[in-house]
Computed example of a mutant assay.
Amino acid sequence: MIATIQKESEIYTARYERHFHHSVEEVWSMLTDNEKLQQWFTELQVVDLRNGGLIKFDMQDGTFIDMKILDYEAFKVLAFEWGEDIARFELSSVNNGCQLTFIETISSFSEQTVKDLAGWHVCLDVIEAILDGRTIASRKDQWKAWYVKYEELLEGLRKAGQKDARSF
């Protein structure tokens, strides 16, 4: 399901909802255990897992970006800097598994915004596939398809001149 995008005060939020048929502990480990994290987001590495801790983003050119952990509660919340924005994972136990809510705050829209929206969408799909013991044939093809959908979503927002919108 495509994310919902809303304006809240002076920022936008993109909200993704996923239900996994796996425990909170299993999903949490996908976000915080570097071995498992590497399976779905090779550029990220948890260095210091705590409120105020550190996650590194490997730019794949020998340089790294330090991203501060802004909110942390084991098995419930992991939020960290994402450029000028914030990437936030929230987990809760539900019948038959775990509810994951991912929220990206977006301070301003740029060409990178659509790439990130499609990228996060595919990342969440890959987490689910890994947990289910499946593979996604081509992450790149998946990303391209979602890129078009998120580009349409943002274009629809621009054309409508809306200050907030829900997925359509």
Rank of each mutant, 00 (worst) to 15 (best):
M1C: 13
A3P: 00
Q6D: 11
E8Q: 11
S9L: 13
E10C: 11
Y12R: 05
T13V: 10
R15C: 13
R15P: 08
E26G: 06
E26Q: 07
V27T: 02
V27G: 00
L31C: 00
T32P: 00
D33I: 04
L37R: 05
Q38D: 15
W40G: 00
W40S: 01
E43C: 08
E43I: 12
Q45H: 13
L49N: 02
N51R: 10
G53A: 03
M59F: 12
D61H: 02
D61T: 03
I65N: 14
I65V: 15
M67W: 09
K68H: 14
I69K: 03
Y72G: 03
Y72S: 04
F75A: 04
V77G: 02
V77L: 05
V77M: 07
A79E: 04
E81T: 10
W82C: 05
W82G: 05
G83H: 07
G83W: 04
G83T: 04
G83P: 09
E84S: 15
I86W: 06
I86Q: 08
I86V: 15
I86A: 09
A87P: 07
E90V: 07
Q99P: 06
L100W: 00
T101Y: 08
I103G: 01
T105G: 04
T105C: 06
T105D: 06
S107D: 14
S108P: 15
S108R: 14
S110G: 11
Q112M: 15
K115V: 15
W120V: 01
W120P: 00
V122R: 02
V126C: 08
V126L: 13
E128V: 07
I130G: 02
L131E: 01
G133C: 01
K140G: 13
K140L: 15
Q142I: 10
K144C: 12
A145I: 12
A145C: 12
W146N: 14
K149Q: 09
K149D: 04
L153H: 03
L154T: 07
E155R: 10
L157T: 07
G161Q: 04
Q162M: 13
A165S: 09
A165P: 08
S167V: 10
F168Y: 10
